[in-house]
């Protein structure tokens, strides 16, 4: 690991100022991904600005009937929060499906959103990767890509976003509160993360110095009927092969509204807007669920070793929709 200075920011303004002053600085949250990437040599900051005490840890109901989650809130506190459990169960489930108890106690909400892909090539600086060394190439396309993207990828990158939490947030349409050099703004989910295109080194739309200060959940009453289902090789402590987050508003056998996002399929938590619109007003039947899933997956461009993800996502999506409908 390269030597670095450690600074603890007292508030968000000084944190942002510290980063704008020091171009080789990075924010440190729970450190569960960043410290690892530094040890691997993938991240080489000259300065770490600890923001765990600069941003809020609070989780409180917001004026609009939603929930405001401080960026420094630990994943485990988020999942254990009674409002999250009652009104956004898929978010609690998604967070609980991620990593392990120890990691969830460390990881912050802001940091979770900004964790980086676990593609093997990205994590090995002795190998080419357009994400860690732009222009060096993407060996995953011809090499190992079983766990990588089937949709929205580019010739320069087939990585997936690893977060479970982000999938639920994308489905819920959360807003990410950001403070930057130019002031504060909100970025809607999905929309924080970007597709790789020809700049796969950029995971998100954030600019240098931007600090996530909070995540706000909208009031979405029907999200109390929601579920996160993660498919993984090992029964626990494993990244998703694929995952789905679904909230369903159904009455009298008809879908009034729904929210669907997919994990493990793209460089971003993938909001399944095509499936959502196909289902609005449709009968809540397995046939309609399958039709909607197929519509969404028609855009998939799997690689040889991850083609199985297409039927897998379809099966899981239909299953979760059916479970929520019954």
């Amino acid at each position: 690991m390269k030597p670095f200075d450690y600074q603890r920011a007292a508030d968000t303004r000084s944190a942002v100022a510290a980063l704008s002053r020091q171009p080789e600085a990075m924010y440190l949250g729970g450190g569960t991904n960043l410290v690892d990437l530094m040890r691997l040599g993938v991240a080489t900051p000259a300065v770490l600005v600890d923001v765990t005490r600069a941003t809020s840890e609070a989780i409180e109901e917001s004026s609009g009937g939603g929930l405001l989650i401080g960026a420094a809130a630990r994943n485990s506190d988020l999942a254990a929060h009674p409002v999250v459990r009652h009104r956004y169960p898929m978010l609690a489930q998604a967070v609980l499906a991620g990593a392990s108890g120890q990691i969830r106690n460390m990881a912050t909400v802001g940091g979770n959103l900004l964790q980086r892909t676990r593609c093997s090539y990205f994590q090995d600086i002795a190998k080419p990767c357009n994400k860690h060394r732009p222009g060096s190439g993407c060996p995953a396309r011809e090499g190992d890509h079983r766990n990588l993207a089937i949709i929205g990828h580019s010739s320069s990158c087939v990585a997936t976003h690893p977060s479970d939490m982000a999938v639920a947030l994308a489905a819920l349409g959360a807003s990410v509160h950001v403070e930057g050099v130019e002031g504060t703004r909100t970025v809607p989910m999905p929309g924080l993360h970007r597709l790789p295109g020809d700049e796969p080194e950029r995971d998100t739309v954030l600019e240098p110095g931007d600090l996530i200060t909070a995540v706000e959940l909208p009031a979405l009453p029907y999200a109390s009927r929601s579920r996160y289902r993660k498919v993984r090789d090992r029964a626990s402590f494993a990244f998703a092969v694929v995952s789905v987050a679904v909230a369903l508003d159904e009455a009298d056998g008809v879908v009034r509204d729904c929210r669907i996002a997919l994990g493990g399929v793209a460089h971003v938590p993938w909001r399944a807007t095509l499936a959502e619109s196909a289902l609005r007003g449709a009968p809540a039947t397995a046939e309609e669920f399958t039709r909607a899933a197929d519509l969404e997956l028609a855009g998939a461009r799997p690689l040889p070793d991850n083609a199985f993800k297409v039927p897998l996502v379809r099966n899981v999506l239909v299953r979760v929709l059916s479970e929520l409908a019954s």
Binding site: S76, Q102, N105, M106
Partner: peptide, 13 residues
């Protein structure tokens, strides 16, 4: 009182 991974925790924090 909370379990964490000491290999990912920087001592300075």
């Amino acid at each position: 009182g909370r379990r964490v991974k000491s290999c990912l925790t920087l001592t300075v924090t």
